[in-house]
Design a protein around this nucleic acid. Structure first.
Length: 294
DNA sequence: ATCCAGGACCACT
DNA sequence: AGTGGTCATGGA
């Protein structure tokens, strides 16, 4: 009986103006961890290690068979997106300028829809470190094990079918609290085929958002996260507490426009890549401004 | 100890 | 169409 060798494959992905660190810590993906100046994570069924070089990202993947086609990784990293062209569409006010210069090379990843959706269902009123912890527990307990070169075992993100079969009690053991029934019921709708995640890519943004919001635990904000981070609807603009405070603080100097009014403002003001601009503001506020909000 | 976190949902006006 | 309370858990 032959077992196909599991082996580590390497490549260099040429990049320009790309910061792995800013990108992987900006609150869009939650499974990356920094180990000795390298980044380790799981994409689909592959364990991956990335590191920043000048002009390239060095990548190692660990899987059965040989790896010759790296398009799955380039697609995830969006390494071929012309970031300068995206940024050129941002408004040129002082706050955007500050955010852009504070987070050079920050990118939007292109994530798998189910993992992205489930992750953000688990994100509500949680800090990013806690979201990472919850997702880590969920994967460790219910994902499929993957070998790594170091001998450490990591796990895939459990599929919708798998999550649908987990009891609410077992989900709550992953510390997700009141989000457990939301995650479970959403997984069941997807597993049953009541909602087709792959079909959402073909819809216009309003219908795509409407589809996602049929899922329990998915409102406007989480839907916009999935629209932006998994489907790349560039006009999706996740309006969370950080962005809300940023907008009020930076653009509306303590007048207090309603969230609805703010959303309308963002759609015209931030241009065709509003969601991308939002990610810069979010990361900028969260890492550089910190408590200076309000 | 008190407040708050990449919210959604329900019951109220 | 807009408010307020509630949900679970752990940082700050």
């Amino acid at each position: 009986m032959f077992t196909r060798a599991t082996q580590e494959a390497h490549t260099f992905i040429p990049v320009r103006n790309y910061s792995l660190g800013e990108t992987l810590t900006s609150g869009q993906a939650f499974r990356w961890r920094e180990v000795d100046r390298e980044w380790e994570g799981v994409i689909g069924k592959r364990w991956v290690r990335l590191s920043q070089e000048t002009g390239a990202i060095r990548a190692a993947a660990f899987e059965t068979g040989s790896v010759e086609d790296w398009s799955w990784l380039k697609n995830y990293l969006q390494s071929e997106t012309d970031l300068d062209r995206v940024i050129s569409t941002f408004p040129r006010d002082q706050h955007m300028r500050a955010a852009i210069s504070a987070c050079p090379g920050l990118r939007l990843l292109k994530q798998e829809p189910w993992e992205c959706l489930a992750s953000f269902i688990l994100s509500s009123t949680k800090q990013i470190v806690q979201i990472q912890q919850i997702i880590g527990l969920l994967c460790e307990r219910f994902g499929e094990p993957i070998d790594t070169p170091s001998g450490r075992t990591v796990h895939t993100f459990p599929s919708a079918e798998r999550v649908a079969a987990i009891t609410e009690e077992d989900l709550r053991c992953c510390k997700m609290g009141f989000r457990a029934p939301y995650l479970r019921a959403s997984a069941q709708m997807i597993a049953r085929g009541d909602l087709d995640l792959s079909g959402i890519a073909r819809l216009d943004v309003e219908n795509a958002r409407g589809e996602l919001m049929r899922l329990p635990g998915v409102g406007r904000k989480i839907a916009d996260c999935v629209l932006l981070f998994a489907y790349h609807f560039q006009e999706a603009f996740p309006l969370d507490v950080w962005i809300l405070n940023a907008m009020r603080h930076l653009y509306f100097a303590r007048r207090r426009p309603s969230p609805k009014g703010l959303l309308k403002f963002t759609q015209t003001y931030f241009g065709p890549n509003a969601g991308y601009a939002q990610q810069y503001l979010f990361h900028y506020m969260r890492t550089r401004i910190g408590r200076a909000k309000k």
